[in-house]
């Protein structure tokens, strides 16, 4: 697969169809993958594909990266789950479909965190999203690398995230509150969750609006709660459960739980799953007379 990927990248750069290929490459010791930006055909061999390719590179398509946009039309190497984020960016008018060349990778799953890798992809080191993945075959792509995957996700979603959500759902309000206040207490307000997220593309985040200061920047319980709740609300109906925020969090706040719970709520309320259709707008930005309004009591 790697060879086909490199060949395609080389062709695209040689023909001038794209100016940069955003993909994964090795670090110096070839122990971890890291994002690479290939601008000349002879560097195409630096691209790699393996279960360590965890990063969701779609973040580099957003307007946060004006210097990367200045390089010219990009091709992006993307797993099915990364493509979901590109789809959301398209539906929200951030990227035009024709402005990006998507090289979709057929995927058998990746590791939850690169440091867990011991040379073999075992189910225990894969994130919940991979166990339930229905996009192992890239569904929006200009070129697909890899044999068709025959994997079918389990009927009822399984994995740590879903188990934990059930556990929290069974708590009463004060139990839920105590759980989250404890988790958020570790927040250091580094905003890694926001920065790694391709759907947090605001040039000026609400936490940076300081006249007045809507969200207290202090890492105290009130500031941490308001930041984490606000970010969660801003991702409702948009988050695709790519898991980058939880992976990037230096203090291990289980953000996947919040995001997956929100996905379930949106599924129940609007029968909508984000990231599957680039022609459908997410429910939070459209009005539909058929919307259930049972939240208004």
């Amino acid at each position: 697969m790697e060879e086909i990927l490199r060949k395609k990248a080389r062709e695209l750069l040689e023909s001038g169809a794209v100016k940069v290929v955003i993909g994964w490459g090795w670090n110096r010791n070839r122990t971890r993958t890291t994002p690479v930006f290939i601008t000349s055909p002879e560097d195409a061999d630096k691209l790699v594909w393996n279960p360590l390719c965890v990063n969701n590179l779609s973040v580099y398509l957003t307007r946060k990266f004006k210097d990367i946009q200045a390089l010219g039309k990009p091709a992006i190497v993307a797993k099915g789950c990364d493509i979901k984020n590109i789809v959301v960016l398209i539906t929200e008018g951030q990227v035009k479909r024709e402005d990006v060349f998507i090289i979709g990778m057929t995927c058998d799953g990746v590791v939850y965190r690169q440091e867990l890798w011991k040379g073999e992809l075992r189910p225990e080191i894969m994130p919940t999203k991979c166990h339930n993945c229905d996009v192992r075959n890239p569904f929006v792509a200009d070129f697909v690398v890899g044999e068709k995957s025959a994997f079918t996700p389990p009927e009822a979603p399984t994995g740590m995230v879903f188990d934990k959500i059930k556990e929290i759902d069974n708590k009463d309000a004060s139990g839920k509150w105590a759980f989250w206040i404890n988790e958020f207490s570790r927040c250091i307000k580094c905003y890694a969750c926001r920065q790694v997220c391709s759907l947090c593309y605001c040039e000026r985040c609400i936490t940076e609006k300081n006249m007045p200061q809507w969200i207290e920047t202090s890492a105290h319980p009130r500031g941490n709660l308001s930041w984490n709740l606000t970010r969660a609300m801003h991702l409702v109906g948009r988050c695709t459960f790519c898991g980058e925020c939880e992976r990037a969090c230096p203090v291990n706040i289980p953000l996947n739980l919040i995001n997956q719970k929100m996905i379930q709520v949106v599924k129940d309320a609007f029968d909508f799953r984000s990231g599957y259709d680039e022609k459908t707008h997410p429910p939070m930005i459209v009005f539909n007379p058929e919307d259930k309004e049972n939240f208004i009591k």
């Binding site: 690479v36 973040v59 946060k64 580094c190 905003y191 890694a192 920065q195 230096p250």
Partner: peptide, 21 residues
């Protein structure tokens, strides 16, 4: 490729920048 998350500065033992609010 830096995404500007600042996690490096927060775990760094010598980084010291602060803001008054």
């Amino acid at each position: 490729k830096c995404i500007g998350c600042g996690a490096c500065t927060f775990v760094c033992p010598t980084c010291h920048c602060f803001d008054i609010t």
